[in-house]
Design a binder for these strands. Sequence first.
DNA 1: TTGTCGGCCGATCGCCGACAA
DNA 2: TTGTCGGCGATCGGCCGACAA
Lengths: 223, 223
Amino acid sequence: LDPQLWRACAGAMVHMPRVGSKVIYFPQGHAEHAASMAEFSSASMAIPCMLLCRVLSVKLLADSETDEVYACIRLQPDINGCLDPDDEEPASPPLPEKTASFAKTLTQSDANNGGGFSVPRYCAETIFPRLDYSQDPPVQIVLAKDVHGTVWKFRHIYRGTPRRHLLTTGWSNFVNQKKLVAGDAIVFLRNAAGELCVGVRRSTRGATTNINASAWQLAQAAA
Amino acid sequence: LDPQLWRACAGAMVHMPRVGSKVIYFPQGHAEHAASMAEFSSASMAIPCMLLCRVLSVKLLADSETDEVYACIRLQPDINGCLDPDDEEPASPPLPEKTASFAKTLTQSDANNGGGFSVPRYCAETIFPRLDYSQDPPVQIVLAKDVHGTVWKFRHIYRGTPRRHLLTTGWSNFVNQKKLVAGDAIVFLRNAAGELCVGVRRSTRGATTNINASAWQLAQAAA
DNA sequence: TTGTCGGCCGATCGCCGACAA
DNA sequence: TTGTCGGCGATCGGCCGACAA
């Protein structure tokens, strides 16, 4: 999974802590975002509201069904550590993220069955492979890799009056397979290897995170 | 789940023991038909090759996805009982099963997408609702309940030269939803309430039974 | 610049009788 | 009696430019 594609799908607001840095883990905050609301009322489970931890590893992942991106972060309780703002804060590594990427929220016409995808000019000219404008109409086949490495094929054409960029053949298949609806967003980017990638960012539905058993063992062990 | 529909789907070769009768349970024979081959080699699991049991209950069920019928039979080990052939053998209760039922294996043409279903004359005349032959062509809508109680709608027409019975509109939807292929069989019957019912009997694929935890506890407890 | 619409063309679905096994 | 086939009409998917926001 390309880290740049992961970042583009997650959005600019998402920051990942650096491995080895200190973070504060809030079990209740984590639980409140979880799919299955955990039991917190029980008095026998005295869990601290926050835990100072050290980041052991960060794995960038994507759901095999929905393509939604998420991270698996291993934490080690670090009771003796002191809170040093300089140590814990530096969120994401300041990579020179100058990768060209573009996100568009799908309109009704984009998501409509039987329709195509209206490609914003900026996206077509800066992200897509260069189109041969000497043809009439200019048209090409565009290949894009998703988070699983699957390659999708689209027909990219520049036509209409006034001229605009469109994805036609291949688009509706993509929409159906990914089960996209109006309001979901699609992300195009060119990765470090120069390959065109495509990602998905769903609107709201099913945007619940998972809290796994290990997280609870961590919280209870520290209690 | 209509017991007559269950019997028709299971086929005439299938017999169910009466509740309260004695049966002999063969754990290994059960395991060999199970989806997940169980461990028998371990010496620590000394399981007898057969167990004399009494039948506590018999539940007739159907898989919610495949429609395949199966039974859940609760057994009580009966170590002290003696083998009385008269007691244990009388397989299925000799119900007066004079319900009209008909099974047909789907031909390539039946299963072909875009085609209809060729209804054998006997089935159409004895199982289906009476057709008004004064129309030209005689045609009616037929409703049939499956093992889950879901009602399916078919257009039943009598046409062609020579005349034959066909299911047209509604048939391909049924084939697709039930994922039927040539070689699978379809069962029509009229139950005690006079309702038309439809069942499915798949050819071979996935015809593995499940062996559950309770069965193992029974076998091990008796060991 | 780009979202939505109606037109239109071609592919597919599915109903039909012909024919033969 | 009924399985398979080719024909063909209706429907639908999907590509198009017109137009307006």
